[in-house]
Design a protein around this nucleic acid. Structure first.
Ligand SMILES: O=c1ccn([C@H]2C[C@H](O)[C@@H](COP(=O)(O)OP(=O)(O)OP(=O)(O)O)O2)c(=O)[nH]1
Ligand SMILES: [Mg+2]
Length: 1254
DNA sequence: AGGCAGTTTTG
DNA sequence: CAAAAC
DNA sequence: GCCT
């Protein structure tokens, strides 16, 4: 039912999107894009090349349509055919969103990389979702239902609702997928692809320099008209170079993300066969049509030569050179020097049509006529380095949807829409004839830049005038395709615009010197198509942050607020103008040496100083610096320094800081003008309300208008430029003065509110109307203070029992670690770490400590060093030795995970008082919402850990400071504790809000942000939450968390966890006796109390079966048994039927003699299922503890690997932009056993109970 | 000045 | 996509 | 907050 609804919703959504974008009936000429050649002159044998050493590569063809050194203007070009059909296609992207996702992606032999990050669909939805969110409360925002044509409105409520619903349901409900509009925020090149119509557009933004590509190589992308179907192959063949892939070796590249199965190589075949064969989805693989690219089509790939630019191989139709963009390259490590088979352009028609059929959704009429269904495999042998190049395509939309296009009979013409502003667009749109409009547009352009851009839209490029009727084909010298999204985004409200988001495709090139380069496609980031109307764009940008919290953005109140937040507005202007005059005279002053001025005077002086944008020299690179002058643009501050007389140097500095970032500093408090009051009195941690009020000339804080937040300096400091398109957090768009805009993100004001009493001021949470406010984003939460508190009591536990484990689990046969049996209670035995033991024994405690510390330090420094792999406890016959060498691994040591645990007794810590104080401080920070606090906690936890094992009483600052992990700040705190026995900082940080916020965070699903929002909404008690005081929104999960607040925050005795697990296991095994079911988490680590029950389930596949479906069956059985009581989250077998997570609440079975009246607490339970192949990695993950995991993963990373719950991977490359995005999936090197992974990482084997680090 | 683990689910 | 969670 |  829900599913059905979702299907409906998504269908509606898509058709609506299509309709709005005017995509339904558009057809386009087909173009292909290709890389003519890429050359690499670097070869790094198995070593990770530090990012710093990798120069960005911009690939511009020699015959690019412009000779300029720099792309003069943004260009836009529309390609027909799916980008998927282009070497850098998004094919997978789409596939990932389709019903039988995994399968459909792979050809029978396509065991290669499945590069999709799987993001397209998700992010697509997210984008849609996020868009409004960023704008203002999406739901609150009443946007008329979509109207045909350029709707003046954005997305209607119901529309959004649909999107929303569809979003959660995801692909599985739709046959037809949304357009994988992919985008990489901030990229100079952007692309959009609409699968339903098979079109792709790209935009290259100005500023790229040809010479940027000099460092690593060059390449050319071409867009050539695709005659009719078949060319694709040869095209591809050339690009991919190799002939048919070599099925033989297929040491495929593993994709961590998508299930292992999928990515597995031949070794996985049988496994996969089992999985899929089991009657689930048909094995995607075989496209009947699938066949190796015909030899004829395969042309040799340009050989990368160390020096020259490869030339296109023969047989490639002379292409009309168009535009190419490569944003940057990165190197990653590919461990396996054997060959990789990389699926080339994969066909999707088969899968897709099937899907379409089933879904009943009709796809866009114009399917690309490129021949699909082929695989252009390629093989690269001896891959040692992977280059990742990002390509971005983009398409612009006009009010009527896509760029106008004319149909030429059956043929569609691709066109580019030159545009420079909405007005132009509008006019263009208005006149059916593009030409006129174009010229208009052009004429209005700033001029200049155009010349060098003979961009011909329709293919009539300088090199090859090809298209016949480009509707808008500008002429020669006109940069016909000028796109300026920023403008669109910030265009005057009245000009409605539909804007499709950008998309980005990332392609990674795998190559090895002297070998054929291979191109692997990787979709890195997907955003969604979105429609905005100008007003939204504007308000959204400026209020985004507020919106979510503030609720509707329509009242006048909000409009007002909006206005005050908007960049250009009157306020600023006025402020400036009024000062202009004054400035003139005060001008010279600012500069001079020591002139004493009051803060007000200085502020005035500042007005005379121009805000200087970054110099040209800077403009190329560092965006933070480049756009510094925009960071605070639009804000008008009143700065409360608390200084009675002259402004201090620091005050002036800060005023300067604001000024040069485009902010205005008022010299006198004017509630009409001010947008923010900065309270920067003597103690930054303790803003002085009295002084502030005096300065403002007010009686009480309440006299400050609600829309004016009182913030600490920290907030001002938090502004930073983020890539356009990045809508995370509290961001706003600021016009860059060149018709574009930059996105600036800042912390939420409430995070840095000077006075708790005013946390609600400004953006932040509620609005006074009390109507619905936050868009309700929050979800779940981690360990709350409440929980931690609870746990603390009994948590001391540890080693004790653990004896009962063995009879409970059977998984241990595979699990390297036999449960802590009676034989090995969690007491540390010399057996585990002989080495360590020895060290300890012979050296005095301090010596030991220092040794450890030293080791740690060395480790970091010794990256280069290659030590003979000597694993303390590693099994010699273990594959370790094989892996290590191949990678030229360095045996890093000194990570937290390396040391089996300090054996220093925690009982009598000589520095306990210090530890207690620091811990208290850490907990205070833990409840706070900023990133800063987060890392502070991370840091404190490390310091505390060090202090705990430090054998002596610390007696001085220096002594403390010498402990690695303890820096200046902490050493000072220690000093204070030593001298006074107190730590003032604790009081300071312990603001009044903290207790309440901690209380709220005790609710499962409520974290720092939501807690603060509720607080700022006026809620103070759980009852306030229950009654939804002030209209706060409480999610389903939070509701449950609230209901069982105490239960959830109470740890259970180990025994109880055992009882529950035993009951569950019994049922599970009755479902399938072959299941491996194990209790993990703190239980496995031998803890005496457990915060929850963590269960891992998998199943060997040797008999041809899998555990597919058991989780659902099990859950339902458990529910019937009365064990499971609530669902906090349900499994989503998105791309792997074997991988899922369930989270919920359960109750232990009755014991003998108990009746149903016996009171039993509700317990948290998590059940995880994983493919058998991943069991080793999953065991590590799920055994924890979390700190141990992080350390292990960190170490893996430093060694050039990446570890997650699915396995240990090599060759993973992540985007520097967004670390969560992988630009290269890497390949798996271990996952089946814990030992293997430990071994490769050079981490001595540690029993579960020895992995306690927190 | 950037990294500090890496992932999934919800709304 | 942010937030919360593991 | 600490470290590189
Ligand atoms: O941020 C986290 C949280 C958890 N885990 C892993 C390790 C952990 O052991 C396991 C289970 O998580 P849980 O939150 O249940 O922790 P626990 O170790 O079982 O402790 P508790 O007794 O509080 O449940 O998941 C992580 O890798 N990262
Ligand atoms: Mg647990």
């Amino acid at each position: 039912m829900a599913l059905q609804r979702a299907q409906l919703n998504s269908r509606r959504l898509y058709s609506e999107l299509d309709r709005r974008m005017g995509l339904e009936d558009e057809g386009w000429e087909t173009y292909l894009m290709r890389i003519r050649g890429v050359e690499f002159n670097e070869f790094h044998n198995g070593n990770v090349i530090p990012r710093e050493q990798v120069a960005p590569v911009l690939m511009l063809g020699d015959d690019a349509p412009w000779d300029a050194q720099r792309v003069p203007r943004a260009l836009s070009l529309r390609l027909d055919g799916d980008i998927e059909d282009i070497p850098f296609g998004l094919g997978e992207c789409k596939a990932s969103g389709t019903e039988p996702p995994p399968q459909s992606l792979l050809g029978p032999d396509a065991k290669g990389q499945q590069s999709i990050q799987g993001a397209s669909w998700d992010s697509f939805m997210a984008d849609i979702y996020g868009k409004p969110q960023s704008t203002a409360n999406p739901r609150a925002k009443s946007i008329p239902k979509a109207q045909a044509g350029p709707s003046e409105e954005g997305i209607s409520d119901s529309f959004m609702a649909d999107v929303y619903g569809a979003g959660s349901k995801k692909p599985r409900d739709t046959g037809k997928q949304p357009s994988p509009v992919i985008t990489t925020p901030g990229s100079p090149i952007q692309a959009v692809h609409q699968p339903s119509t098979g079109m792709s557009d790209l935009v290259i933004h100005e500023g790229l320099r040809k010479q940027d590509g000099a460092a690593l190589g060059q390449g050319i992308a071409e867009v050539s008209r695709q005659s009719e179907g078949g060319t694709a192959d040869s095209f591809m063949a050339e690009i991919y170079g190799a002939g048919p892939k070599d099925p033989q070796k297929d040491k495929s590249i593993q994709t961590p993300q998508p299930s292992l199965r999928r990515s597995a190589g031949s070794e996985y075949d049988s496994f996969m066969g089992d999985v899929y064969g089991a009657g689930a989805a048909p094995k995607p693989s075989h496209n009947p049509s699938e066949k190796p690219p015909s030899p004829a089509h395969v042309s040799p790939v340009a050989q990368p030569t160390s020096g020259g630019v490869p030339i296109p191989s023969s047989g490639v139709p002379p292409s009309n050179l168009r535009y190419l963009m490569a944003e940057e390259t990165r190197l990653g490590l590919i461990r396996n020097e054997s060959q990789f088979s990389i699926p080339g352009i994969r066909s999707r028609d088969r899968d897709e049509s099937a899907m379409e059929g089933s879904s009943g959704v009709q796809s866009g009429p114009s399917r690309s006529n490129i021949e699909l269904g082929r695989e252009a495999p390629m093989r690269v042998s001896s891959v040692s380095t992977s280059y990742v190049i990002s390509l971005h395509f983009c398409r612009a939309y006009s009010a009527t949807g896509l760029l106008p296009s004319s149909r030429t009979g059956k043929r569609k013409v691709s066109r580019m829409l030159p545009r420079d502003g909405l007005k132009k667009q509008k006019s263009i749109l208005g006149s059916r004839d593009g030409q006129a409009s174009v010229s208009e547009t052009l004429s209005s352009l700033k001029g200049g830049a155009l010349d060098s851009l003979p961009i011909d839209v329709d293919g009539a490029g300088p090199s090859a005038p090809r298209r016949s009727s480009p509707v808008l084909a500008p002429q020669s010298d006109e940069p016909s395709a000028i796109e300026d999204f920023s403008r669109i985004a910030t265009a005057p409200p009245r000009l409605t615009t539909q804007r499709k988001a950008y998309s980005a495709v990332e392609t990674s090139l795998l190559t090895t010197p002297g070998d054929s380069p291979a191109v692997r496609r990787t979709v890195t980031f997907a955003a969604g198509a979105q429609m905005l109307r100008a007003p939204l764009a504007i308000s959204g940008s400026s209020t985004s942050s507020t919106s979510a919290i503030t609720g509707k953005g329509k009242g006048k109140a909000s409009m007002k607020k909006l206005a005050s937040l908007m960049p250009p507005p009157v306020v600023t202007l006025r402020a400036n103008t009024s000062r202009q005059a004054l400035i003139k005279k005060g001008k010279g002053k600012g500069k001079e040496p020591v002139v004493h001025m009051t803060a007000a005077e200085y502020a005035q002086t500042l007005q005379s100083k121009p805000v200087v944008p970054a110099t040209a020299a800077v403009s190329g690179g560092d965006s933070q610096r480049k756009w510094r002058h925009l960071l605070l643009k639009g804000f008008t501050f009143f700065y409360v320094s608390g200084e009675l007389t002259y402004a201090s140097q620091s005050t002036k500095k800060r005023m300067d800081y604001i000024h040069c970032r485009g902010g205005v500093v008022l010299s006198t408090y004017d509630p009409e003008l001010v947008t923010h009051i900065i309270v920067d009195t003597a103690n930054p941690d303790k803003p002085d309300a009295g002084v502030t009020l005096r300065t403002l000339g007010l009686k009480k804080l309440g006299d400050i208008p609600d829309h004016v937040p009182t913030v600490k300096w920290k907030w001002v400091n938090s502004a930073k430029v983020v890539p356009n398109g990045d809508r995370a957090g509290n961001f706003r768009k600021v016009a860059d003065g060149n018709g574009g805009y930059v996105t600036v993100r800042m912390d939420w004001e409430f995070m840095h509110s000077a006075f708790i009493a005013r946390v609600h001021a400004g953006k932040g949470f509620k609005n006074t109307e009390g109507n619905e406010k936050d868009k309700g984003k929050g979800k779940t939460k981690p360990k709350t203070a409440a929980q931690r508190k609870e746990g603390e009591n009994s948590e001391e536990e540890d080693n004790d029992s653990a004896a009962d484990i063995s009879d409970i689990s059977n998984f241990t046969q595979d699990a390297p670690s036999p449960p802590p049996s009676a034989a090995e209670p969690p007491t540390y035995q010399s057996t585990s770490f002989p080495n360590e033991q020895e060290i300890c024994n012979k050296s005095d405690p301090l010596g030991e400590f220092e040794a450890l510390a030293k080791a740690e330090k060395e480790a970091e420094l010794a990256r280069e060093r290659e030590l003979a792999s000597e694993f303390v406890n590693a099994d010699p016959k273990d594959p370790t030795s094989i892996h290590q060498p191949s990678h030229g691994t360095h045996n890093l040591q000194g990570f937290l995970c390396d040391a089996p645990k300090s054996n220093s007794p925690t009982s009598n810590c000589p520095n306990q008082d210090i530890v207690d104080k620091l811990e208290a401080l850490m907990e205070l920070h833990r409840a706070k919402p900023t990133e800063e606090d987060k890392w502070r906690v991370y840091s404190y936890s490390k310091s505390i850990r060090k202090l705990r094992i430090y054998p002596h009483r610390i007696t001085s600052y220096d002594e403390a400071r010498n402990i690695p992990g303890i820096g200046d700040k902490t050493a000072l705190k220690i000093k204070e504790i030593l001298e006074t026995g107190e730590l003032r900082r604790i009081e300071i940080e312990h603001t009044d809000d903290l207790d309440v916020v901690n209380l709220f965070q005790g609710i499962y699903g409520v974290g720092q942000h939501i807690a603060y929002m509720w607080y700022s909404a006026g809620c103070r008690t759980l009852d306030n939450i229950r009654e939804r005081k002030n209209g706060i929104k409480v999610s389903d999960v939070q509701e449950i968390g609230l209901k069982y607040y105490n239960d959830i925050n109470t740890r259970m005795p180990r025994v109880e966890a055992g009882e529950i697990f035993t009951a569950i296991k019994r049922i599970a095994v009755s479902i399938d006796p072959h299941l491996y079911i194990e209790i993990m988490g703190s239980y496995r680590r031998g803890k005496v109390t457990c915060g929850d029950i963590d269960i891992l389930i998998t199943r060997p596949t040797d008999d041809g079966n899998t555990h597919e479906g058991v989780l659902i069956t099990l859950l339902s059985a458990l529910q019937h048994e009365g064990i499971i009581r609530e669902y906090l989250s349900m499994p989503d077998f998105k791309d792997d039927p074997l991988e899922a997570v369930y989270r919920g609440l359960c109750i232990r079975p009755l014991r003998e003699g108990e009746d149903h009246d016996t009171k039993r607490l509700m317990r948290r339970i998590d059940i995880l299922t994983v493919p058998y192949k991943s069991r080793g990695a999953a065991l590590i993950y799920y055994t924890g503890d979390d700190i141990f995991n992080r350390s292990l993963r960190l170490k893996a990373n430093k060694m050039g690997y990446s570890l997650n719950q699915r396995g240990l991977f090599a060759g993973v490359v992540r985007s520097t932009e967004n670390k969560m995005i992988k630009t290269c999936d890497g390949h798996i090197i271990a996952s089946e056993s814990e030992e293997e992974i430990f071994g490769i990482l050079g981490v001595p084997w540690q029993e579960p109970w020895e992995r306690v680090r927190s």
